[in-house]
Design a protein around this nucleic acid. Structure first.
Length: 463
RNA sequence: UCCUCGAUAGCUCAACGGUAGAGCAUCCGGCUGUUAACCGGAGGGUUGCUGGUUCGAAUCCAGCUCGGGGAGCCA
């Protein structure tokens, strides 16, 4: 007999009702009496459990009624309407086989656990309601990201995880090496001789695929990356991880406005896709994780994102009747408290802040006509802060070289990046979306460590 | 990295200088429709680690480790 999934039972109940079926899954809890009992079974295919009813007619009734949480079983029986109010149907077991027993020290209870504790058992937490919901939403969202871009003609580019460009400027990097630390090769000056290293040069884990993907942008016009990214920053916050996933679209013949249009369309698409394709999980988040979730997401889908320039943002903040810990002044970067005020108090929806002073942004961002600002954009979202950072890129070779000189960057290191401007360079723009921050925003989860399967943070690489 | 709060049974917490406790979980028993099942009983602890103060430390002090909240860096 074929194995039926719990998802099929819930989605196409009529097809299975009053029929004999087989289901495989894991025991979430057992409630047993003298001559009968109930098992909450989760088979991984669906958020909700299947209630299995069993009685003394089972040859192994005693054994089954003593099953502990976490055990894996195979059940054969008839799907019948349930007299209970909490489930529409249940499986009346004719036979239950123990596939893999569990033990009494199984750490997960039916009671609620703290997220802090569950992080210490990251190998078991996907068996809980919350993490089952988080990681199914994560999977569905990843698919939606691809679908969004592929449907619009974007080409998916795999940029390297190991990079030789050591100055991408997006943060501290993890070094990749095969050198023997106990016997490092040295040059005449006594410095480590990386020409003896595996790649014959210094290499690191990527902090961004942007520079590389720009080259493919000049071939395919519309491209995107979606892959792991590494930052060796000693950041200890609920929004930072040393290893995370980033989505970076890049469009040729596009300016900052096109860039924001794409970002806004994408955010709305992803929300709608997840609401439609993970309704049980999203309901759970709205009921148990963040009661304002649906209101917030609906608000995002329905409203037009705010769009203001950095200069306007400074004016708003200076006029605000709010005591800020950090002073507001043109030329200084916006502090978290400023960003929160803008997106949570002034706009109460996502807002793009554009055209920042060139001094506080990356070298590759396009200089505006005012010569003091660049065509940058940050998307600030209530609750999670900066979720997208992007810009129109400097396509004018002379301007780009001048900016690199001002910042003391070595042009030779970027020869291929500069070549792109030489050979048919066009206007182009793109952005980076932190995938985990997106998942946090979609689920209401407030710690990035709870939306990555095995989070890497300073001092933490268990599993 | 900085500021701040915390770490006690498997989990969530209490005890705040004088013999370490509860609920849940676990184990045993009971129960013919449960659903955070219910009822009765039992076991379970080098109080995060290292050192110090004290007649006596879970409690006071210092350092370290890990965690929460805030900040910086950013996505």
């Amino acid at each position: 007999m074929e194995i039926t999934t719990v998802r099929e039972l819930y989605r196409q109940t009529e097809k299975f009702l009053n029929k004999k079926i087989r289901v495989n899954g894991w025991v979430r809890t057992v409630r047993s009496s003298k001559s009968f009992g109930f098992i909450e079974l989760n088979d991984g295919s669906f958020f909700s459990n299947l209630q299995v009813v069993f009685d003394e007619n089972l040859a192994n009734f005693k054994e089954i009624s003593k099953l502990v949480t976490g055990s894996a079983i195979k059940v054969e029986g008839e799907l019948v309407e349930s007299p209970g109010v909490k489930q529409p149907f249940e499986l009346k077991a004719g036979n239950i086989e123990i596939e893999g027993a569990s033990t009494p020290d199984y750490p997960l209870q039916k009671k609620r656990h703290s997220f802090e504790f569950l992080r210490t058992i990251a190998h078991l937490r996907p068996r809980t309601n919350t993490f089952s919901a988080v990681f199914r939403v994560r999977s569905i969202t990843a698919y939606a990201v691809h679908k969004f871009f592929q449907d619009r003609g974007f080409v998916y580019v795999h940029t390297p995880v190991i990079t030789g460009s050591d100055a991408e400027g997006a943060g501290e990097m993890f070094r990749v090496t095969t050198l023997d630390f106990d016997q490092l090769p040295r040059d005449e000056a006594g410095k480590v001789d990386f020409s003896k290293d595996f790649f014959g040069r210094e290499t690191n884990l990527t902090v961004s695929g942007q520079l590389e993907v720009e080259t493919y942008c000049m071939a395919f016009n519309k491209v995107y990356t979606f892959g792991p990214t590494f930052r060796a920053e000693n950041s200890n916050t609920p929004r930072h991880a040393a290893e995370f996933w980033m989505i970076e679209p890049e469009m040729a013949f596009a300016d900052l406005q096109n860039n924001m249009d794409l970002a806004e369309e994408m955010m709305k698409y992803l929300i709608m896709y997840v609401m439609e394709n993970a309704p049980e999980e999203m309901n759970f988040f709205n009921n148990f994780i963040d009661k304002t979730l649906f209101d917030r997401l609906e608000n995002v889908v329905k409203s037009e994102f705010g769009r203001i320039t950095y200069t306007e943002a400074i004016e708003i903040l200076q006029k605000a009747n709010e005591k800020f810990e950090y002073p507001v002044a043109w030329g200084h970067d916006l502090q978290t408290e400023h960003e929160r005020y803008l997106t949570e108090k002034v706009f109460n929806k996502p807002v793009f802040v554009t055209d920042y002073p060139k001094e506080i942004k990356a070298f590759y961002m396009r200089l505006n006509d005012d010569r003091r600002t660049v065509a940058a954009m940050d998307l600030l979202a209530p609750g999670v802060g900066e979720i997208i950072g992007g810009s129109q890129r400097e396509e004018r070779l002379d301007r780009l070289e001048k900016r690199m000189e001002e910042l003391g960057l070595n042009k030779d290191d970027y020869w291929w990046y500069l070549d792109i401007r030489k050979y048919g360079g066009t206007r182009h723009a793109g952005f980076g979306l932190g995938f985990e921050r997106l998942i946090m925003y979609l689920t209401g989860m407030t710690n990035i460590r709870d939306v990555i399967s095995f989070p890497r943070t300073p001092g933490n690489a268990e599993f």
